[in-house]
Amino acid sequence: MARIVVIAVVSTRLLLAGLAPGESNIGAYTWFRYTAEMETDELRESRFGLERGYLRWNHRFTDRIDSRVNVDIYSTDKYPAGAGLKLKYGYLNFKGLIRDAKLTIGLQKSYFGLIYDWKYPTIQKCLEDKEKVIASADYGISLNGNIPKGYGEYAIQVVNGEGYKKYKSLVNLAPALLVNLRVIPIPGITIGGSALFERSGPEYDRRLLHAGIARVVIGPLTIWAEYLGAELGPEGNTTRGSGFMVMPALRLRELTGIDIDLIARLDRWDEDVEEIGDASIRATGGFNWHLLRGKKGKIGVVLQVNWVRTIYEDPDQGPEDAVMAQLRWEFVTKPL
């Protein structure tokens, strides 16, 4: 089914690009990873896999209308099928309605917390994505733009709320409302917050998600911090989840001449704060070695190495360790 959808979308896209004026560019992202997982010091898995690949197609019809289609491809023994593909993004942007803003319609990013601009400084997803609090993409409409003079950005979004992997009976009748604001009061300090509210869902009644983020840059040191909260269920019978992430990263390029970033990260997530034994803490240490920078400093070829230890609140569950080494390469063509 996924293949049929992708083939249909790509064919339509090809046809549109052939007929429509404008210009296209194509990008490819590939993540090849080795993973060794240990549970209480016993090796549980050791595997290579092409964990992720994207084919991204941008097409600019005019200066005011452009589109993006992203196809997510993976090939790994982690899943029974061994390989697969799905549509990650498929949207149109309409610009110029409001200064420095665009209206986005289609399958698009979820403008929440850190998920929408997470560039994978660690191999792991950001906290809200990893803990499946919110999907990184969803179907809907958004107005998103920049605050004048570079003081930040905002987004207002109406989406299904269930994310891009859910369909039919798993998508409810009530859309979710999402708001996001980030402010950069002084250079190097970003603070922001997001909230998602949904009246009801197939797996819950009433859902309120909220996140607060902060990012501080002091020379080569960058520190990210995020607070995440989730409330599921009606008033009086609400399950509350909460967590946080702190991630310092040290850029060594200026200090050593080698383009390496050292990364440390600490996550904590408690799915139900009133229940004992369901929380976990995840500590990550590693580095990103930029072997080749892409144009304008973007990723070209990077080697990412992470060690992750997960400790569970449940005393019966021992700690888990994972060592991951990932070669990630990305490129974008010039306009075609």
């Binding site: 003079k149 570079g150 950005e153 950069i184 002084i186 250079p187 970003t190 990012r215 840059v217 020379g219």
Partner: peptide
């Protein structure tokens, strides 16, 4: 400008 300010 936004990207620059965010990166200090």
């Amino acid at each position: 400008i936004k990207r620059a300010r965010a990166d200090g």
